[in-house]
Design a binder for these strands. Structure first.
Length: 477
RNA sequence: GGCCCUGUCGUCUAAUGGUACAAGAUCGCGGGUUUUCACCCCGCUGACACGGGUUCGAUUCCCGUCAGGGCUGCCA
C-alpha cells in the first residue's frame, strides 16, 4: 500500500489563520502518523491579494508551530515548483486538454456582459444568477480574450464518501460551468488545486468544510483528466463564540486571536496551540492535554466530528497554562527572556534569580507574557508600586512593623533560603504576639508593589537578603 | 432564494437501539487549603432542538419542522 501524500495549500493573502493552522495540523499529523508525505504548496493565483510578505508569514508561522514540510518551498521535491504562479504552463496544458476532449470550453463573454445580465435580475435574485452557457457549444475561435469554463453534465449526480462527512451525493444541475482559467491565463482555485493535486500525487485532501461544495465539480475534473480521485476529509468550521465565521474583524470584536503569529507574540507554547486546535473537532476519550507525539499517535479521522464548533478563549488559555506547567524551570527561563526583554528588562540568561523566579510565577501564568508580567518586580531596581495598595497597606503602624521586619531579615546569617526567612519571621512574630496576617500585605506591597504575588518567603528568597531589606526599609520610610 | 453540511450541559468533546439517574474537560457557583493571588482538593448547577414514524424499546435509525453554519466570484 502506498503511503499517503497530503498537503496544506494556503493562499498568502495576510497571515496564517488559526483555522488554517488546524487544517495544516491535521494533514501533518496524518503524514507523520502514517509515514506519509506532507506537502506545502503556495496558492498565490489571486494576484490582487497575494504578497511576498504574506508568504513569509506563512513560513514563519508553520515553523513556529513546528509543522515541517517534506516537499515545498525551501525543501524542494520531485513535484515542484510549489508556487502556483510558477506552474502556469501546467495549467494551460491541462486546460487545453480538457477543451480538446470536450470537458471544458472557451468562453468569450466579457465580464461586463455577464454583469449586465446579472443586473437585469431584481436585486434579491442576483445571488442565484448562473452562467447561462452561452459559449458552451461555440465552435469558432475568434481572436478575443476568453476564459476557460468547465463543461458540466446537465444531469446526473456526483457521489463520493467523505472521511468526515460520510456519503455525499450532489446533483449536477446544482453546479454551474465555473471558470477554470482567467483570461490572463492564471487558473482559479478549483482548477489549480486539482491540477496540482493530480500532478503532485496527493492521495488525501483534508481542508475546511467551506470547500465541501467545491468537491463535486473537482471530482468531475479528476475524472476528465483520467486521474485517481483522492480521498476527501472536510473539517468542521471554527466559528467565533457567537457562532459566526471567524473573520478578522469579528474575531477582533470578540477578543479572539485569529493570526497564528498573535499566539507566538502573546507567549503561547506552540505545542499548546496545537493541542487546543487539535481538540477542536477531534477528541480521544477523556484526554484533554496531549503532547505533540501523543497527537501523532492518537490522531484518527474516525474521531473527527462533523459539526462546527465555537472558539472558547477561556478553555484555550487553560490549555496554554497546562502546557506551561509541564515545562521545566530552565526551559521556561530561556523562553521567557524575550518577553522580559520586550518589557525593558535585560535579564541575563545566567542570572541566578531567573529559574527560581520562574518557579514562583508558573502556577499563576497562562502564557509566557503573563509570566513576564508576573516576574517584573524581581528584576526592576524598584518595584512598580500600586498606589492604591500602598495607601491601603503602608500605614504608619505597618511601617513600624516593616522596619522591624527589615532588621530581622538583615540579622540572618549563614545560608539564607526560603526556610530561613520563614523560621526567622515566625520567631519574630511569636515574640511580638502577632500573626503573619499583620504584616503579610504590607510586606508584599513593599517587596512586589502589588497585593497579589507568590508567597512572601519565596519572594524573599529570590530577591535575596540585601534587596529584601532595602525594599522593606524603603517602604517603611 | 437555491444547494450542501450540522444540531448532546454556556463551550469543546464522550458514549449508546435496552447495565445509564447521558460521561469528561472548560467556564460559572459554593466550600476546603492558605500570608495575598494562583495552583491544588471537594462539591453543585447544567444537555440529547421540536414533531412524527420504524421498533417490544430511540438520545442513538428514518422523515418533517425549526435553528445554526457554509457555498452561491475571472477569491481561496
Amino acid at each position: 500500500m502506498t503511503k499517503p501524500r497530503v498537503r496544506f495549500a494556503p493562499s498568502p493573502t495576510g497571515y496564517l489563520h488559526i483555522g488554517g493552522a488546524r487544517t495544516a495540523l491535521f494533514n501533518w499529523l496524518w503524514a507523520r502518523k502514517t509515514g506519509g508525505t506532507f506537502i506545502l504548496r503556495i496558492e498565490d493565483t489571486d494576484q490582487e491579494r497575494s504578497t511576498d510578505e504574506a508568504v513569509q508569514v506563512i513560513f514563519d508561522s508553520m515553523r513556529w508551530l513546528g509543522l515541517d514540510w517534506d516537499e515545498g518551498p525551501h525543501v524542494g521535491g520531485d513535484c515542484g515548483p510549489y508556487y502556483q504562479m510558477q506552474r502556469l504552463d501546467l495549467y494551460r496544458e491541462h486546460a487545453e486538454r480538457l477543451i480538446r476532449e470536450g470537458s471544458a470550453y472557451r468562453c468569450y463573454c466579457t465580464r461586463e456582459e455577464l454583469e449586465a445580465q446579472r443586473n437585469k435580475l431584481p436585486e434579491k435574485k442576483r445571488a442565484h444568477w448562473v452562467y447561462p452557457g452561452t459559449c458552451r457549444e461555440r465552435r469558432d475561435e475568434p481572436n478575443l480574450p476568453f476564459v476557460v469554463r468547465q463543461k458540466l453534465p446537465r444531469e446526473g449526480h456526483v457521489a463520493y464518501t467523505d472521511l468526515v462527512c460520510g456519503d455525499m451525493n450532489i446533483p449536477c444541475d446544482t453546479m454551474q460551468d465555473q471558470v477554470l482559467m482567467r483570461s490572463n491565463g492564471v487558473p482559479l482555485y478549483n482548477f489549480g488545486a486539482v491540477v496540482d493535486d493530480v500532478t503532485m500525487g496527493v492521495t488525501l485532501v483534508a481542508r475546511g468544510k467551506d470547500h465541501l461544495i467545491n468537491t463535486p465539480p473537482q471530482i468531475l475534473l479528476y475524472r476528465a483528466l483520467d486521474a485517481a480521485v483522492p480521498q476527501f476529509a472536510h473539517l468542521p468550521m471554527m466559528l467565533t463564540p457567537k457562532g459566526e465565521k471567524m473573520s478578522k474583524r469579528l474575531a477582533d470584536q470578540q477578543g479572539i486571536d485569529v493570526p497564528v503569529g498573535k499566539y507566538r507574540d502573546k507567549g503561547w507554547l506552540p505545542d499548546a496551540l496545537l493541542n487546543y486546535i487539535a481538540r477542536f473537532g477531534w477528541g480521544s476519550g477523556d484526554q484533554e492535554i496531549f503532547s505533540r507525539d501523543e497527537l501523532i499517535e492518537k490522531f484518527d479521522w474516525s474521531h473527527v466530528g462533523n459539526h462546527d464548533g465555537r472558539y472558547d478563549t477561556k478553555k484555550a488559555l487553560w490549555v496554554s497554562a497546562e502546557h506551561l506547567r509541564k515545562r521545566s524551570d530552565d526551559d521556561l527561563s530561556a523562553m521567557v527572556l524575550p518577553f522580559l526583554a520586550s518589557r525593558g528588562l535585560a535579564v541575563s540568561p545566567t542570572d541566578a534569580r531567573l529559574a527560581p523566579a520562574v518557579r514562583t510565577v508558573r502556577p499563576r501564568s497562562s502564557t509566557l507574557a503573563d509570566m513576564a508580567d508576573a516576574m517584573d518586580f524581581y528584576f526592576r531596581d524598584e518595584p512598580a508600586v500600586d498606589a492604591k495598595a500602598a495607601e491601603k497597606f503602608l500605614t504608619v503602624e505597618a511601617k513600624g512593623l516593616l522596619t522591624e521586619l527589615a532588621a530581622v531579615v538583615e540579622g540572618l546569617t549563614g545560608e539564607v533560603n526560603e526556610v530561613a526567612y520563614h523560621t526567622a519571621v515566625e520567631a519574630w512574630l511569636v515574640s511580638k504576639g502577632l500573626e503573619i496576617k499583620a504584616v503579610a500585605q504590607p510586606a508584599r506591597v513593599a517587596l512586589t508593589g502589588r497585593t497579589a504575588s507568590p508567597g512572601l518567603y519565596e519572594v524573599m528568597a529570590v530577591l535575596g537578603q540585601a534587596v529584601t531589606v532595602a525594599r522593606l526599609r524603603k517602604a517603611a520610610a
